Structures are given as C-alpha cells and as structure tokens.
Simulated scan of single mutants.
Amino acid sequence: MITAIKGVRVRRAAAVAVTAGAVLATGALTAAPAQAVATPTIAAKTGFVMNNANGAALYNKGMDTKLPTGSTTKIMTANVVLSQANLNLDAKVTIQKAYSDYIVANTASSARLIVGDKVTVRQLLYGLMLPSGCDAAYALADKFGTGTTRAARVKSFIAKMNSKATALGMTKTHFDSFDGIGSGANYSTAKDLTKLASNSLKNANFRAVVKTKSYTAKTITKTGSIRTMGAWTNTNTLLSSYSGTIGVKTGSGPEAKYCLVFAATRNGKTVVGTVLASTSVTVRAADATKLLNYGFARLG
C-alpha cells in the first residue's frame, strides 16, 4: 500500500518535471520583462522617446543638448498657425514673388508654389509638412504675422513661435526662422521637439496632415482657372516602412545633419520621439525605427 502511494508520487513528480521542462523550452515562463529590453544604439547625436500618454521618458541620449533643427522647425510653424483664434483653413493666400525668390536665394526645399496663385491655408499646411516647402512656410508666416510690412509680419510670427515654445516648457529652444533656415540662433533639443510634437498631435488638423503620404492641391490661378499641382510626397519614409506611424516631420541641413521627429500608435499606445544629427536619410529612419521598437517594448 505504502509502496503503491510512493510510486504514484514518483510518477506525478516525474510528470511535473517533464511539463516544467517543456514550458521552459518554449520560453513561456522566461519571457523577459519589458524593462529588460536591450537599449538600442543609434547613429544620431541625440535622441529621446516618450510615452505620449503621460510624458514618461522611455529613451534618452543627450536629450537636453541644443542642436540645429533644420525643417523640424516647421512643426512649430504649423502649431502656431493651427493655434490661431477663429482659424479659417479655407482662407486663400496669394503666392508672392518674395516667397519664390527666397527659395532660389537659399536653395531651399520647395512646394513649387506658383506666383500669383491663390492657395488655401489648408493646402499651405500640406505644402509645409509633406515636401517641406519653405515657400509655404514663408506664405504662412506672412499671412499670420502682424505688421504693415512683410518683414514685420515675419518677425512677429517668429515671436509667436518663441512664445509658444515658452508656453510649452521648451526651455532649451529658440527660433530665428519660420522654416529652420536661420542665422545660427535656431536650435532645440530632442526632448523639446518631442514635447512639441506631442502637443501638436492633439490637433486633429495637424494629425490629418502629418499622417498623409501624398497630397495633390488644386489652386486658383491669376486668371481664375484651376491648377492641379504636382503631388506633394511626404518626406517621412516611416509612414510607409513602420506600421502604425502617424507622423511627424523630417529635417536636414549642413548644420542640422539628418533629423526626424516621429510618432506611432500600436495597440492603443502612442510613442513619440526625436533623433537629431543622424548621418543620412536612411540612417535617421533606422534610428527612429530602433527607438520606436524599444519604446513599444518598454511599454509592454
């Protein structure tokens, strides 16, 4: 009787051991906790990623280092425009020769706006954020600045950009241009730009623009006819390469190198981040991909 009971116990123990071994082999009991995910290495000089829900930092590499921002500056341009009281997105702006001359003088990225055409504010926002049009940025600054001269209006618009930065707690940021082509005093940090992106994404119109891969504007010519513009393609390649991407904006330049402010949503969770001074267009996307993967892994 006693021997039989012992035999049952031995068999049960052996079965438990076999089951446990099988579980361990499949990894069911050894899944690494989220906080144990290996921290990625990126080529960018600085990087920052946060949980959009509460602002909690998920990754940091030199997040408070001040660096040139290139066209990621245009996130603030869009933010200021979309923050205007009683904004009419269908209001028309006539494209001035000054905007075209500015593009030529600075060899700047362009939405290829045609002098004399009437373009809506909504279309200018797409021209600003997709092909990174500095002509669109100039038009918006001229439209939404205040003053009797174009120079005064642009100056006041840039002042609005800096006021908004202060209001958002972007303590290590300063803008001296509406598009990132400044005079050496246009800088921010990976953390500040991430904070700006998070705030901007609260606006439905901003979200609609920055998640768009391609947009074709129909403008009104001097003679009143309709001009179908060439399609504007979003320079943010993550929209095609990373599932769940919802924005935000690229930037580049001799001083800024290659920058990207990015955001993605998966399983109801949104991660927002920035890489500044990466080494190429391809590498900045790879850097952002690593940081998004890491961010989501940290969130679990």
Rank of each mutant, 00 (worst) to 15 (best):
G7R: 08
A14I: 15
A17L: 14
P33L: 06
T39A: 15
T41E: 14
T41W: 05
K45A: 08
M50G: 09
M50W: 03
Y59N: 15
L67Y: 10
L67A: 07
L82W: 01
D90N: 09
T94E: 06
I95R: 00
A98I: 12
A98R: 13
A98L: 11
A105W: 05
A108F: 10
L113N: 12
D117P: 03
R122A: 10
R122Q: 12
C134H: 00
C134S: 09
A137E: 01
T146G: 15
R150W: 06
K155A: 11
S163V: 11
K164H: 14
T166A: 15
K172Q: 07
K172C: 14
H174K: 05
I181T: 10
G182I: 01
G182V: 08
G182M: 02
S183Q: 12
A197Y: 00
S200I: 01
A204Q: 10
M229C: 10
W232S: 14
L238K: 02
L238C: 02
S243F: 13
G251S: 01
G251F: 10
P254R: 07
E255I: 07
V261F: 10
V261P: 03
N267M: 01
G268S: 02
K269N: 10
K269P: 04
T270A: 05
T274R: 02
V275W: 01
A277H: 07
A277C: 05
A288T: 01
A288V: 06
L291A: 12
F296Y: 12
